[in-house]
Amino acid sequence: MQFKAMVVAANIEVLETPLVLYALRRADDALILGHRLSEWCGHAPMLEEDMALANMGLDLLGQARELYSYAAQTEGKGNDEDKFAYLRDVRQYRNLLLVEQPNGDFARTIVRQFFYAAFADLYWRAMTKSSDATLAAIAAKSEKESAYHLRHASEWVIRLGDGTAESHARAQAAVDDLWSFTAEMFDADDSERALIESGVAVDPATLRAQWLKTVSLVASEATLALPSAEWMQKGGRSGRHSEHLGHLLSELQSMQRTFPGASW
């Protein structure tokens, strides 16, 4: 009996210029969070929420595709959106640690979405003024989607936090657990600093005060307490991830890794 060896697609190489790296970071945020939301399909607490989470996941996937395509165009090395999504190793991903965290219960998913959307809404609105015309156009579309994501998540945070004793406890536990992942959203390294100085990118640190105000107002209405701890988790932007991303990518990339170049 003869066995045919399985062919596994190799990782691509990426020329991480500042602009390529910038686009990949934002694309990775959107792809990974979109995938997390897709995991709720068929499992949400009600049909309307099943559809809402799926639609938000599709919004994020659309953002990822546009950013990956722009990164490929800018890099000019023959990569495309599929290769960036399916043929990079876990250390090549540059997404925030927050978005790769497991869904957990419904409250945890909503709080994760709320923390990210409160940032993304501000960030993409500011990016509409980017000196890079393509990024400005992507931002204009993404901001409209992020505004809805923020409104939807905020309403749910309030319902859960100011609801039953059980829903309040679960929402508070999610806030306490995920808070340490929020500071990474406002960091910028030397690579990104050059883009900020040239007007291509926005300094995320300038958005932190407004983000905290938005989060605090919603948390107050939801009767939830924000943690006072200052220690924060970091590393996603430089490719140092939690164990959760590897498991996510093994599922996300399984088809392309097993059948390289497959299309439908």
Rank of each mutant, 00 (worst) to 15 (best):
T74R: 15
N79M: 05
K83L: 11
M56F: 12
K77C: 14
N103C: 09
A117N: 08
A10I: 00
P18N: 08
L19S: 01
G57S: 09
T17D: 07
Q73E: 09
P102L: 04
V14H: 09
E81L: 04
A64G: 07
W40L: 13
P45D: 14
N95E: 10
A27F: 12
F106P: 05
N55F: 04
E75L: 06
L21I: 02
V90E: 14
G42E: 05
L53K: 04
N79G: 05
V7Y: 00
G34K: 00
D82I: 11
W40V: 14
R36A: 14
N103M: 09
Y116T: 03
A23E: 14
G57V: 03
A30S: 13
G57W: 00
A118L: 02
V7L: 11
A23H: 10
L96Q: 11
A10G: 00
L98C: 06
V99R: 12
C41F: 07
A117V: 08
A44N: 08
M56N: 05
L47T: 13
W124P: 10
Y68I: 01
F114Q: 04
K77H: 11
G34L: 03
M46D: 11
A54L: 03
Y22M: 11
S69W: 03
E39R: 15
Q63T: 11
F115D: 13
Y22C: 11
L98G: 10
I110M: 11
L15I: 08
A64E: 07
D89R: 01
G34Q: 02
Q73R: 10
L47G: 02
P45F: 06
M51C: 08
T109I: 08
E81S: 11
F84Q: 02
A30L: 02
N95V: 01
L58C: 05
D59N: 07
L21F: 04
L67Q: 09
A30H: 08
D50Y: 02
K83P: 01
R125K: 15
E16C: 15
Q63I: 06
D80A: 10
R94H: 14
F119D: 00
A126S: 15
C41N: 04
Y68K: 06
D28P: 00
Q73G: 03
K77S: 15
R94F: 12
V90A: 08
D50I: 09
E48I: 08
Q92K: 05
I110A: 03
Q101Y: 01
L47K: 05
Q101M: 06
N95H: 14
M46L: 12
N95S: 13
V111R: 06
A54M: 05
Q73V: 00
W124C: 05
R94C: 09
